[in-house]
Design a protein around this nucleic acid. Structure first.
Length: 110
DNA sequence: ACATTGACTAATT
DNA sequence: TAATTAGCCAATG
């Protein structure tokens, strides 16, 4: 596991505003693009993002990263955060309403 | 070098 | 709507 890559992922996750969220796939793409611009080599798909969070996710708001269906890795804990942050959820209250919560680094409504 | 495994995704049933 | 299938990329043994 490349430390530089891990840092990039964690930094990005830390930038996600409360009440918003990003998908693993999107995080992977944004980080990958950043590395390309930096003339870097390290790549990584969505699964690598998950691998990084599995190791060092404890120090970042990991609940703001969900899969394409809007499901967080640890629903029990994530739900409590969503309630506290006012994150938009779907009718079943079990998954993040990505249509409304999805966030990008260049989002004007940071 | 090969097989297995994951905090994934998209398309197909 | 839910389950299955196939593709995916890197880490690990």
């Amino acid at each position: 596991m490349d430390e530089e890559y891990a840092e990039a992922v964690l930094d990005l996750v830390e930038q996600v505003p409360a009440g918003r969220a990003m998908t693993y796939g999107t995080v992977a793409e944004v980080v990958a693009d950043g590395f390309v611009l930096a003339g870097g080599r390290a790549r990584g798909g969505p699964r690598q993002v998950g691998a990084v969070l599995a190791r060092m996710g404890a120090r970042v708001p990991w609940w703001r990263v969900v899969n394409a269906a809007g499901h967080p890795h640890d629903p029990a804990r994530a739900l409590a955060h969503y309630a506290a942050e006012g994150t938009p959820l779907t009718s079943d209250g079990q998954r993040v309403a990505l249509r409304r919560a999805i966030w990008f680094p260049d989002d004007p409504e940071d």
